[in-house]
């Protein structure tokens, strides 16, 4: 399969990249890992005049902790995230490890996954559940956007054409937190989820009461979504099967699935419930410092 002709630019810093973007407008498309963009070019879904390779931008690399905040560069690969590390939340590592295949994980980037904004994106759900914010840098400077509200539709986000997603900000992990990630697909690898769920729990110091929770659902709406009712059910509740079951029920009610060739809306809704329950159990085990249950 052939790539259509395009011009190629590799700016060496963010300022240059933004200038090029300003100059070319929507004629230029930023290129990160390429696992999605190059496929879409080959399938003729996109035909930009130029690709702007972000690979040289140091501003988009690395990870650092700053006070209570973690800042992950948009160019972190899924493999790097999957292998964890001091600043990578375990929930994000779990999602990253479930993405595609080793070859895809080695190329796919944090920023790319967020910008591509597929409804079942394996990095988006953990980030949503973790309450992450995206840093969008444009000609006027940077702005921070909560991921809750960032996704607008399949492939569409609040990012303006002149902006580059440069970093992702997260609260630094604290004791008493735990995450769960559940992905249901046909195959065990090389798979886009039929339904996937990420759950994040924060327990009170008593280790039993839920201080805060977020549940993110994938493939049950046009975008990765948070399940607000589930969070509401969980907040202040006891971390037990009863609350989890109620939260799972609420998550299923929040889901807005449709029928497509991969699965029916009814099945997806039921799976949103089942996977939420499992993700919450997994999150609790992690929060209580136990061994992780079946990732």
């Amino acid at each position: 399969m052939l790539l259509p002709p395009f011009e190629y630019y590799r700016p060496s810093n963010l300022e240059q990249a933004l200038a090029l973007l300003r100059e070319m407008g929507d004629q230029a498309h930023p290129l990160a890992g390429g696992t999605d963009l190059l496929v879409n070019l080959k399938l003729k879904k996109l035909a930009p005049k130029a690709l702007l390779d972000l690979g040289g931008l140091e501003e988009l690399k690395g990870s650092r902790a700053d006070g209570g905040q973690v800042s992950l560069g948009a160019l972190n690969s899924a493999s790097r995230l999957a292998s964890g590390g001091p600043h990578v939340p375990r929930l994000l590592a779990m999602g990253a490890g479930a993405l595609g295949s080793p070859q895809v994980r080695n190329r796919a980037t944090l920023g790319g996954n967020l910008v591509t904004a597929r409804p079942a994106a394996d990095l988006c759900l953990p980030l949503l559940a973790l309450g992450a914010r995206a840093v969008l840098t444009g000609p006027q400077g940077s702005r921070e956007v909560s991921l809750d509200g960032y996704f607008q539709g399949p492939g569409y986000t609040v990012k303006e054409p002149g902006e580059i997603l440069t970093r992702v900000l997260l609260e630094a992990p604290k004791p008493g937190q735990g995450g769960g990630y559940q992905k249901l697909g046909l195959r065990q690898a090389l798979e886009i989820a039929l339904v996937n769920v990420a759950a994040h729990l924060e327990l009170e110091p008593d280790g039993k009461t839920i201080a805060m929770a977020r549940v993110a659902l994938g493939a049950v709406a046009p975008v990765p979504m948070l399940a607000p009712s589930a969070a509401q059910v969980l907040q202040g509740a006891k971390a037990d099967e009863k609350s989890f079951t109620a939260a799972a029920q609420a998550a299923a009610a929040d889901a807005k699935p449709i029928d497509d060739h991969r699965g029916s809306a009814a099945y997806r809704r039921d799976m949103a419930r089942t996977l939420t329950l499992r993700a919450l159990r997994q999150a609790l085990a992690q929060a209580q410092g136990g061994k992780e249950v079946g990732a």
């Binding site: 080959k42 070859q103 895809v104 080695n106």
Partner: peptide
């Protein structure tokens, strides 16, 4: 094999990591 990263036939090792070479630009 497929040209879109689905099959892994074009796998090479780039700086120590496997990649689907069909989804890497030569210039990269």
């Amino acid at each position: 094999g497929c040209g879109v990263g689905d099959c892994g036939c074009c796998t090479v090792i780039l700086d120590g990591e496997t990649v689907n070479s069909c989804l890497v630009l030569a210039v990269q």
